[in-house]
Design a protein around this nucleic acid. Structure first.
Length: 470
RNA sequence: GGCGCGGUAGCCAAGUGGUAAGGCAGAGGUCUGCAAAACCUUUAUUCGGCGGUUCGAUCCCGCCCCGCGCCUCCA
């Protein structure tokens, strides 16, 4: 079965076909850099990374744009609190975000677009909307009038046709003619940062930034627009209203939304205060790969309940895969190739591909890998696995890791960094072997314990000693 | 109230109209000087509840119960 995605717009799983050949134009909503993002946010970014990697695996060329919102109410407030310019203030969190993303092995989009670097594009978009008759102004702010866009609500599947008009609702300290109208340009207030424009001094509303930047980089119609499920309404609905009012064309063909990460059955969020940052978890000794695995292992349209038990399970699971990889490379094998195993390996890859083609069903893809691992372990036990099958199995792991990217341990830090070198370990292992040969088990055990204290685990196998860092 | 998602073993979780993937934990075993590590085996007569359709439903329909999200900034 070919690649399929669930499209929020149609509420159906659809075959994926880009507009143009094998080029995928993709836009994803990035962070607002007013603080460290939490792992709930990273659940979405990890989903986007899996999506990126799978599209590339399937041979598509990507043009992926991610925005960085670096001017908004929280940023202005935070910068004022610290007596910094918004540029200085957001630089800290922007840097932190990309460091964290790299730690989680998230691939960089082809373009990262900070809002403040694209004010001209936003001004241009607002002028076009104004010319189109979609806007009105009030106290120096410019608003989008949603009654000018009859399809408003088509993404979130809300019916606004019977809504009240004319009611004045004070939201966000700006007066709007209609509760559902949204601000395109906020009038300058007090000491807040501002830009001069033909429609007055001020700063952009949030929604216009994505419409303006997406179209600036990717053209009038995107293939994929992705983000967290909470952005469906109003953010993405508003993007559609703005963009399609300007172009008269479909803004994005496939809308993909990831479910939230929950903690104690509630979504993780800054305002609820129930969040962990990546740095919190790393500080508790969890490996980035374990966090990445946990975030990726639950299919993106399912709520993911974050627990430390789950994080520990993820750590163990990765260890199992690494043990398998180690066994594959370290075991002495008879010459030749077992064709059944070669075929089984190809079949594992097909099952893995089928699962991810099916709207990125990562849980099923992982199941395909683990079934394979178990069967190959048995084949190794039975002596059925031969020298040339190494390549078959390595290929399976390579395909797996091209998407999940958890096999390679992260750079060790702190205590482990100044641990023993490989040569030192080998020397002690040899020493222990000699002691064992001499039946000096006390000495052998002493060496074993010494290594264990340094985080080195010895495995006595039929073919001798294998060691690994814990 | 409107829109949407979900309730599958101790925990996480896939899935199909024909009688339940996978991971973690638990139990047993193989290996071993003893261990450890690793590996293997095993663990739901049952899929929130009640009806209905069907030869047959966890999977389709209806009702109910429970949890969650959006409707305001939000991944």
């Amino acid at each position: 079965m070919p690649l399929r995605f669930y499209n929020t717009l149609t509420q159906e799983v659809e075959l994926f076909r880009p507009l143009e050949d094998n080029l995928v134009r993709m836009y994803t909503c990035g962070p607002t850099v007013y603080n460290y993002v939490h792992i709930g946010n990273f659940r979405t970014f990890t989903f986007q990374d899996i999506l990126r990697r799978w599209l590339k695996y399937r041979g598509y060329q990507l043009n992926h744009v991610m925005n960085v919102t670096d001017v908004d109410d929280k940023i202005i407030a935070g910068a004022a609190r610290e007596g910094k310019s918004i540029a200085d203030y957001t630089a800290v969190y922007t840097k932190a975000f990309f460091e964290d993303a790299a730690t989680l092995r998230l691939q960089q989009p082809e373009h990262v677009a900070p809002a403040t670097k694209h004010i001209a594009q936003m001004v241009d978009a607002i002028e076009k909307l104004s010319a189109h008759g979609s806007t009105y102004t009030n106290d120096g702010s410019t608003y989008f009038r949603i009654t000018t866009f009859p399809e408003y609500g088509k993404l979130s599947h809300n019916d606004f046709s019977g809504m009240k008009t004319g009611a004045r609702v004070d939201v966000d300290e700006y007066d709007k003619a209609d509760a559902r109208d949204f601000v395109l340009w906020k009038a300058r207030k007090g000491d807040e940062p501002y830009w001069d424009t033909p429609f007055g001094a001020g700063r952009p509303g949030w929604h216009i930034e994505c419409s303006a930047m997406a179209m600036a980089y990717l053209g009038e119609t995107l293939d994929i627009h992705a983000g967290g499920i909470d952005l469906v309404f109003p953010h993405h609905e508003n993007e559609i209203a703005q963009s399609e009012s300007i172009t008269g064309k479909s803004f994005a063909r496939y809308w993909l939304h990831s479910e939230h990460l929950h903690i104690e059955s509630q979504k993780m969020s800054k305002s609820l205060g129930n969040f962990y940052t990546l740095r919190d978890l790393l500080g508790q000794g969890y490996a980035p790969e374990a966090i990445r695995y946990l975030l990726a292992s639950v299919p993106y349209r399912k709520k993911l309940n974050f627990t430390f038990e789950g994080l520990k399970a993820a750590s163990k699971t990765i260890e199992r895969l690494r043990d398998f990889e180690l066994r594959l490379t370290s075991t002495k094998l008879p010459r030749g190739r077992n064709d059944a195993i070669a075929e089984r390996s190809a079949q594992a890859i097909r099952a893995f591909e089928d699962a991810l083609d099916d709207d990125l069903n990562t849980a099923e893809a992982l199941a395909a890998i683990f079934e394979y691992v178990r069967e190959i372990n048995s084949a190794l036990d039975a002596g059925e696995f031969r020298e040339e099958n190494r390549w078959d199995a390595a290929k399976v792991l390579e395909v797996f890791d091209s998407v999940f990217d958890v096999l390679k341990p992260s750079e060790t830090t702190g205590a482990q960094a100044d641990s023993l070198s490989d040569a030192e370990i080998e020397k002690l292992v040899t020493e222990r072997n000699q002691a064992k040969k001499a039946r000096d088990f006390a000495r052998a055990d002493a060496v074993r314990n010494q290594l264990l204290e340094q985080g080195i685990v010895l495995e006595d196998t039929k073919e001798g000693v294998r060691w690994k860092r814990k």
